[in-house]
Design a protein around this nucleic acid. Structure first.
Lengths: 208, 208
DNA sequence: GATCGCATGTGGACAGTGTCCACATCAATG
DNA sequence: CATTGATGTGGACACTGTCCACATGCGATC
């Protein structure tokens, strides 16, 4: 007999790939991209180092998988906040949904800094086109609503998505690891609202 | 005699700290933060690994020094672009200088991606307050000019700096390593101008 | 001008990492 | 039942950051 292995530990894991991604996501959540260490992921999954190489060519490929998961969570958080908006007037409703989108983005970054950083850490196989990124599509839809409601001129629609995205992404990064990280929660709230108001007025020419 | 050392290699370097920062900056320029490898920096400086520990407590501390240098370069690039503005009408001049500031920021990020990333990579001893960051001060000054020229209401001045900064920083990051990295130079130009126009209108309520 | 102390530079060691290789195990297919 | 290909293991290698004891020599002190 080769070994007296406990019956609870079959040689083949069964669903190792998913388990690795989950363990990796947990590491990412608490320690960011650099915290996703292949050997530690393997340890937590109760498997030898190297086992991951049967499912991912690279550490980079595992990171990509975790990034996809993080993006999904970001999208869900945004969708939740968007759906929370209660407002019947079309113009005000579309504007409120846009502001909710931006707030949700920054809120997610601040509440899940590790996952947020992983979602945007540059990996070899990252989506080189934003058109596949769910959060981007969500934002685009909200902006389309703004056009339908008449708050945003169709002529101003092109590039509006990137402008909004840049604004909230930049604030998130600066608050997270950047020079603005020392701001108090109150100050953060203030600059966030200022930013959102500025972008809304910049796009639509007015505030609701 | 202990060794037949060539006369060109004195035991003590003379100005090792500066040489290390310079070599590290060169690595940062071509490979970003992760490219700043202590041992490689030492190799390029013609000194043993470990020598750096007489001048920096950490790899992190070396990175911080390089980040400071990168920030200075960013500030200079911004200042150059600002000074290039030729416009006598105060309102138009202040607006043009603000736009130049934003363009210079993104241009620097795109032309020196490694240095830009190092300038904002989170280090232990990084300026936790933006008030010491030269680029931030520069932006603040340009915004003050906008107030003096009457283009920006003093009531809207608080938070305007962070809003501008977030916008250009976010675009830089998204274009550099983010989902927008595949955009062509032409597309980049387009979204940049759109972003700058949006922010200008968002702050001042109009375009020049 | 000789001496000595201390800042500066060296070489070796260690733990930790990503990745490659040969081998072990097992499930499903014939 | 035998084989085979997918999956997991253990060992190795090069590389990294960091700590240690030791070497060197500049500059202050007598």
């Amino acid at each position: 007999m080769p070994s007296a292995r406990a019956a609870s530990k079959p040689y083949h894991h069964g669903n190792l790939r998913a388990a690795l991604v989950e363990a990796g996501a947990e590491l990412a959540r608490t320690a960011g991209p650099d915290g996703v260490v292949l050997r530690e992921v393997a340890r937590r999954t109760g498997v030898s180092h190297n086992a991951a190489y049967r499912h991912f060519a690279d550490r980079d490929e595992l990171l990509s998988a975790i990034a996809t998961l993080a993006n999904e969570q970001l999208e869900q958080a945004m969708q939740r906040r968007i759906d929370e908006v209660e407002e019947s007037d079309p113009d005000r409703r579309a504007r409120a949904r846009l502001r909710a989108t931006g707030r949700a983005y920054v809120e997610f970054a601040l509440s899940e800094p590790g996952l947020f950083n992983v979602a945007f850490c540059p990996t070899e196989a990252a989506d080189s086109s934003p058109d596949e990124a769910a959060p981007y599509l969500l934002l685009g839809h909200v902006l389309d609503e703004l056009v339908e409601a008449g708050a945003l001129s169709p002529d101003d629609r092109p590039g509006a998505d990137v402008a909004c995205w840049s604004a909230v992404h930049g604030l998130s990064v600066l608050l997270l690891d950047g020079p603005l990280r020392a701001l108090s929660a109150e100050e953060r709230r203030g600059v966030l609202e200022k930013l959102i108001a500025t972008v809304e007025r910049g796009l639509t020419g007015s505030l609701s």
